[in-house]
């Protein structure tokens, strides 16, 4: 089984979010970048398929050279090959199109991408990629088993779960649940050393066709002070929620 895991290079979850160039660009100054958490759950599940079922695992990222430390980390975790498509990601459509080319060329059986990146939260790439390839697609996937050519997947729905069966090739929009938080791997020294020798292929983009463009960023207005209510005076809280906030 050949697996491709799509990796997004995103600011760490604790990053301060600021903008530059007249609020048109994300300010990367002092920001630590990480593997998008939803992608990392997928990558870790892919490692399980590698260990238990002999799968090969490639990773692909759409991004410029600055994404390479993140890509190297995926190799240190255990991916076999990495592909970097040498262009800045602008929108989901463009990213999906670039990944579709790589996915088609590589004839992968299973493609895993996070259900959304934690920077733009678009939630577009996995579905678009599947449709462009003509493969089956399961989003918000929290469990995945592969037996031969058949996949059994559980998807999170509003208020529950849905189990389905399908044939490979398949695209998954992954998230926590594919593996547990405690299954995530911190690369060891051997992994890091080996990652240096693994291939990181840089490929040219096929184009820059975008359908949407981020124009300007703003930050939410600062919040007013919290109103503290005495623990002995619950009636006051209920009164505020009812008459002031109109929340109950």
């Amino acid at each position: 089984m050949k697996i491709l895991v799509c990796i997004s290079h995103v600011p760490d979850t604790t990053s301060k979010i600021n903008f530059t160039e007249n609020d048109t660009k994300f300010d990367t100054n002092g920001v630590q970048f990480i593997i998008n958490p939803n992608d990392e759950f997928g990558l870790t599940r892919a490692m399980w398929f590698k260990e238990k079922q002999g799968a090969t695992v490639d990773v692909a990222t759409v991004g410029l050279k600055d994404t390479e430390p993140t890509i190297r980390k995926t190799l240190a975790i255990g991916a076999d090959n990495a592909i970097r498509i040498d262009t800045a990601p602008i929108d989901g459509y463009q990213v999906a199109k670039e990944l579709a080319k790589v996915a088609k060329d590589g004839e992968y059986d299973l493609i895993i991408a996070g259900r959304e990146s934690i920077d733009y939260n678009g939630g577009m790439v996995p579905g678009m990629l599947a449709k462009m390839l003509g493969y089956g697609f399961i989003n918000t996937c929290v469990s995945l088993e592969i037996d031969g050519n058949t996949a059994t997947a559980v998807r999170e729905i509003d208020g529950g779960k849905e189990t389905s069966k399908t044939e490979l090739p398949l695209v998954i929009g992954g998230q926590k649940g594919l593996v547990e938080e405690s299954d995530l791997k911190i690369p060891n020294m051997r992994g890091i050393m080996m990652a240096r020798k693994k291939p990181l292929n840089v490929v040219e983009p096929i184009g820059n066709e975008v359908s949407t463009e981020a124009k300007k960023f703003t930050k939410p207005a600062p919040k007013g002070e919290v109103k503290l209510v005495d623990a002995e005076n619950i009636d006051e809280l209920i009164n505020l929620l009812h008459n002031e906030a109109k929340a109950i």
Binding site: V125, K131, D158, S211
Partner: peptide, 23 residues
């Protein structure tokens, strides 16, 4: 932006070659 709507919108975007803005 229910789970089902988020699931189908990207597929729809490719079918229609439409730009999709979420959230």
């Amino acid at each position: 932006q229910s789970a089902n709507a988020k699931y189908l919108a990207p597929l729809l975007a490719v079918n229609l070659e439409a730009g999709y803005a979420s959230n």
